[in-house]
């Protein structure tokens, strides 16, 4: 049995024990990052509990009263007796309720498309990094091809062919976004797969798929999380753009972009609330998510200066 001498460096290493806790603590060191996160959580909660926060289901046409149309913020409903805090649109839809429900669609589309794109893109990128050779060339040329087109143009073309609908919007967003993830994942994957622990796994006879999934992927996650956060914001704004242009969600279930578009024609008649409030909601949402993304980038970057 070998004799153990006490390692003079042993205790030092034990001190740095809780990586997750340290990460969280260092996230909240920034007031702006904290503000962004609080805002984002509030927005998500508002979207999730929309049915309880609003007194009207803006998608249920039976609940709308055309006589309540085009009311100013603060005016009271003739039919229900509630005040419309943010006014109504031309069909008598309560703007506050419509924004909350619109947020649901925007966030849902954004998160769903970003995660799907992340899954597909990261997988392809990591496979390219790990496998190398011809497979890598094919995947990465496909990425280059994809990224050489303006995103909005590609999304417009896809929706023009496939028609409106939330499902199709998500599909279009995934198709334009996966390439960003693939490129990032390949970059990180290349760095990681040259490290000794990957080679050590080879030597230990760990099968390739297992090395890829259990060793490579978990070590590439941090930068992908940052990209994913920013991509959620990008997807939300892209969805809003598409809806604004009239190729996004159906008119009966307006998302924020469509609400802006609907109100847009009344802008010059002084009925600013129909597009300004959804616009503000969209802006705040995107800013909040980007603040969180920026802070995550700082926190997850190993070379941070704090």
């Amino acid at each position: 049995m070998p004799v153990d001498l006490v390692d003079p460096f042993a205790n030092e290493a034990e001190e740095t024990a809780r990586p997750m806790r340290d990460l969280i603590r260092s996230y909240f060191r920034s007031p702006i990052g904290t503000f962004g996160l609080v805002l984002m959580v509030l927005i998500v909660l508002a979207a999730v509990f929309a049915p309880f926060l609003s007194f009207q289901n803006p998608y249920d046409l039976l609940q709308l009263d055309i006589l309540d149309g085009q009311l100013k913020p603060g005016e009271t409903s003739a039919a229900y007796g509630y005040p419309y805090m943010l006014g109504t649109d031309d069909q008598g839809r309560d703007m506050f309720s419509a924004i909350l429900y619109g947020l649901r669609i925007s966030l849902g589309v954004g998160i769903l498309s970003a995660t799907t794109a992340a899954l597909i893109g990261a997988t392809l990128g990591l496979v390219a990094a790990y496998h190398g050779g011809r497979l890598e060339s094919i995947i990465m040329r496909l990425v280059d091809f994809q990224l050489s087109f303006p995103t909005i143009l590609v999304a417009l073309m896809i929706l023009a062919v496939m028609g409106k609908g939330i499902g199709n919007v998500i599909l279009a967003l995934v198709l334009v976004e996966w390439a960003t993830f693939a490129r990032t994942a390949r970059g990180v994957g290349l760095v990681e797969s040259r490290k000794d622990y990957i080679e050590a796994s080879h030597v230990l006879g760990v099968p390739s798929w297992r090395i890829l999934l259990r060793h490579l992927l978990p070590n590439c996650i941090p930068p992908l999380i940052v990209i994913a956060t920013v991509q959620v914001a990008r997807a939300i704004s892209l969805e809003a753009t598409l809806s604004f242009l009239g190729v996004g969600v159906p008119i009966t279930e307006p998302s924020l972009g469509l609400l802006i578009s609907n109100g847009y024609q009344y802008m010059f008649s002084g009925m600013y609330w129909m597009s300004v409030f959804p616009g503000l909601a969209l802006l705040v949402t995107i800013v909040a998510i980007n603040l969180v993304g920026d802070r995550l980038r700082d926190v997850l970057n190993p070379r941070k200066d704090t």
Binding site: D196, Y197, E199, A200, H202, V203, L204, G205, H215, N219
Partner: peptide, 23 residues
Amino acid sequence: RSVLCRKQQMIFQDPFASLDPRF
């Protein structure tokens, strides 16, 4: 490899790089 790895193994230079940090 599954046969060879039971007969020969390797120790790498940098112990900070050769162990997967997430395991």
